[in-house]
Design a binder for these strands. Structure first.
Lengths: 223, 223
DNA sequence: GGCGCGGATTGATCAAGATCAAGGCAGCCT
DNA sequence: AGGCTGCCTTGATCTTGATCAATCCGCGCC
């Protein structure tokens, strides 16, 4: 089942999600720019390319990742509707980004954000970057110290929060993407989801939609 | 062997380290504030405390970390002489910080950085935060996808770069700290270092000083 | 509706690293 | 100097998650 764009939540931001929110402001950063449509699995930008543009997800979803020389891939983050990505410290991208599904983006030149002239824009951008840092450190905690079931449970809880889904979760990504985000293999992710279903915490309904039957218990599992 | 403050390198910044540098500017952010001495293992700040101050390491070293409810610890980063830390998106710290050895810090109120008024200060702060984000994402790649020996090798290479040690490396942290940074156990770190020594890549000389005999081979091991 | 394809699940086995358990060593204190 | 204490190292065994190998299933297409 391919996720249809219609199912993406309308509200771009939730009120105070329990896990590190992506922006400091509730209504995020306004981007003025061209809209760009990217087909599933198409590259938005690649490692080493010049980083003079920033992107905001309108519909769909994006994976940001790095790869080792032998092809091992680590997904650093998923970008969901409302998220801004592509801001880098230097002049070139140190990660790659690809669309998970057919995706609509707004693209703006970095310079158009007015970070030098507009203190409000600068502060928003700052909040954005710091929230990303928080998320990345949370992610490091998960990758370094949590077990497979804790990783999968926290992934589901985080996704539910970010997608604004209280119980019915429509995932935009494949099992392989989840595995590469959580530092596991696809088999382990699959087995863990099956176990969670057997324990009655979730119900799998087609491989990309998951019913969170006991969200509280799931959150407790995250340790 | 306790590391003496005298052994800390004088130069606060290296020229262009190969791994993500901590600051965009070569001479970093100037902090005007009070100096603070923190004894080994003493807390600089704790999770949940108000984050209205920033810190710069003068001598010694600091670990920044998060803990799970059951005590598992993930060290997010080590802060070495010249590094600035303690900047947070919100008003409270989401991580804790403790001195690794007897440490001297400069403390400044966050507001004194003049990020709102001085565009240069703002840009430096920005570079700092983005470099931290890069480092954190590198760290996630290591934790998610690298083997134990790759983790240890990349740790040694990174430390050598940051401490400005070309071959003789004086580590300010214990094996347990290294393990908690790399998402391994203390036994695995110890065994891996022994293996590296047997392979002739390093020579252990007292448990906190390591001679990198084949830095190039070590770097190749990082994958 | 039937077929085929690609991702997902499941099973069997393997191995990297964790855990449990002793020693060893260095620095420190008296 | 001697002993003590706290890390560090080493060894034996166990467990978790990886790997290898079939299916299975859902979906799109004919």
């Amino acid at each position: 089942m391919q996720m249809s764009p219609i199912m993406v939540p309308r509200r771009l931001y939730q009120a105070a999600p329990p896990v590190a929110p992506r922006t400091a402001d509730t209504d995020g950063v306004r981007l003025i720019g061209v809209t760009l449509t990217v087909a599933r699995d198409q590259e938005v930008f690649g490692e080493g390319e010049p980083a003079d543009q920033v992107y905001k997800v309108v519909r769909g979803a994006v994976r940001g990742f790095r790869v080792l020389s032998d092809g091992r891939r680590q997904i650093c983050d998923f970008y969901l509707p409302g998220d801004v990505f592509g801001i880098e410290p230097g002049c070139e991208h140190r990660a790659s980004a690809e669309a998970l599904t057919d995706t609509v983006l707004i693209v703006a030149r970095r310079s158009s954000l007015g970070e030098d002239t507009d203190p409000t824009a600068a502060r928003r951008l700052w909040g954005l970057a710091m929230a990303d840092l928080q998320r990345s450190q949370d992610h490091a905690l998960t990758l370094g110290r949590r077990s497979a079931s804790e990783r999968v449970a926290s992934f589901l809880v985080d996704m539910a929060n970010r997608l604004g889904a209280s119980e019915m979760l429509e995932l935009p990504m494949s099992r392989q993407d989840i595995a590469d985000y959580l530092g596991l293999t696809i088999e382990t992710v699959s087995r863990t989801l099956t176990q969670l279903q057997v324990s009655g915490l979730i119900k799998l309904a087609g491989c990309r939609s998951i019913h969170l039957r006991k969200p509280r218990a799931l959150a407790d599992l995250c340790a």
